[in-house]
Simulated scan of single mutants.
Amino acid sequence: MKLSICSQCTALSVMFLSFASSATLTVYAQDKVIAGPKILTIQREFTKPGKEGAAHEKSEAAFVKAMADAKATDHYYALTSLSGRPRVLFLSTYPSFAEIEAERKKVNANASLSAELDRANEADGDLLAETNSSMWMRRDDMSLNQGYRVGARYEELTQFVVRPGHMGEWTELVKLVIDAYKKGVPDAHWGTYELVYGGGGTFLVITTLRSGEEIDSNFAKDPKFIEALGPEGLKKLDALEAACVESRQSNLFRIAPKMSYPPDQLVQAEPEFWTPKP
């Protein structure tokens, strides 16, 4: 059910990127940026072989239609994987856990909507090999110019698992990276989220990207980041990462409007993308 939507220096230079949704519109440089509530929920659906793509998209359309017909206020949008196992991530943001509870109550109180969602879940389940969910809280002290860039077509998600007892070194590592980006690549942007339910000691760094060209451009900025760090900073970065990072994984996703029930702010900012005409 899409309502618990509750995933060397060069490697680290792409670790901090950006995400948020459903709140007020602000501007960094010439970007239109939608900065959102602090709680992020993610539901992951891993499809069976051969069941990804159009088959899953058609199944998800039933959820979107049910939510739209009911004028539901619990919004989400979908990301389809371009790397790793075939999967779709459904993301939503909330200002508080009380708001999550309130949205669930609204759905449960709507018998017609609940029935439609149950039917959609049953059909969707035939396509899935595995599902899981998680809840995250944005760490503004570990983010830089965070926000959803209007016009984005991709998102990069990098997950870090921190070794138990090494949170102090992780915090120092993040500060070192942020300071270097502010100095060498001031237009960099990312949002960092800490896992609060669904695991522990895990951080998710998310960026919104407009095109493959922007991805290439981000990699091309590595020398500026390295120069801003300097030799001693580079040595310190390597030492801190070795001490505190247990694992790191980055993946690229495509934003999937046909599988999404996006918040009004996203639709109003880019209606032709989120609600394309047949």
Score class of each variant (00 low, 15 high):
M1F: 07
C6L: 14
A11K: 13
L12Y: 13
S13N: 10
L17R: 05
S18E: 13
F19A: 02
S21Y: 10
Y28V: 13
D31S: 07
G36H: 03
G36W: 01
L40F: 07
F46Q: 12
F46S: 07
F46K: 11
P49I: 01
P49N: 06
G53D: 02
H56T: 09
H56I: 07
E57A: 10
K58G: 02
A61K: 14
A61D: 06
M67V: 00
A68S: 05
D69M: 01
A70M: 01
A72D: 06
A72N: 10
A72T: 15
Y76A: 07
Y76Q: 01
Y77H: 12
L82R: 12
P86E: 02
P86F: 11
F90A: 10
Y94T: 01
F97Q: 05
F97C: 03
A102K: 07
A102M: 06
E103K: 15
A109C: 06
N110E: 11
N110K: 13
S112F: 06
A115Y: 01
A120V: 15
A129P: 04
A129H: 07
T131R: 01
S134D: 15
L144E: 11
Q146N: 11
G147T: 00
Y148H: 01
Y148N: 00
R149W: 12
G151C: 05
G151A: 05
A152Y: 08
E156I: 04
G165S: 06
M167G: 03
G168F: 08
G168C: 11
E169P: 09
E169N: 09
L173C: 08
K175R: 08
V177M: 09
D179P: 02
A180W: 07
K182Q: 15
V185E: 00
G191A: 14
Y197F: 12
Y197H: 13
G200L: 02
G200N: 08
G200Q: 05
G201A: 08
T207E: 12
I215C: 07
N218C: 04
N218S: 13
F219D: 02
A220E: 05
D222I: 14
I226E: 14
G233I: 13
L237P: 00
D238L: 14
A239G: 11
C244G: 02
E246Y: 07
Q249T: 12
S250V: 01
N251H: 12
I255V: 14
P257A: 09
M259Q: 00
Y261E: 04
P262C: 04
P263G: 12
D264W: 06
V267E: 03
E272T: 14
T275D: 11
K277C: 04
